[in-house]
Amino acid sequence: MSTDEYLDDVEWTVDDQGHITVDNGDCEDCSDKPCLHLCPAECFDHQEERQGEIYFSYEHCIECGACLVFCGNDPDKGAVSWTKPEGGKGVEYDFG
């Protein structure tokens, strides 16, 4: 099961700079990698050849803040540096 079909209905004004960065060095010791199943937009991809096996892309982030809580705020993980996009950038909902 993936989120592709769900994300088809989402719109973004994509910034050329990422608002979230992942320091893959911290992923090396992370054994459960909850980012892979908890991010509702699947911004974290499992790629064996990457450092820490994680590839992150910010473009389709829906800015929920989950990765701030389960990774950024966890002193044992902490790979995620989390901010909000610049004004007027990022996800844009019609309904809400």
């Binding site: 459960d32 909850p34 892979l36 199943h37 908890l38 389960f70 309904f95």
Partner: peptide, 30 residues
């Protein structure tokens, strides 16, 4: 329109089920 949603405590979703990376956790969209 209708809205249909799922909600779960994050600590539960982190470990409940067996669909995550090391055999624990459940994707909520699933």
């Amino acid at each position: 329109t209708i809205s249909v949603g799922a909600v779960g405590n994050m600590a539960t979703l982190q470990t409940y089920g067996d669909q995550g990376y090391d055999g624990q956790g459940t994707p909520l969209y699933d």
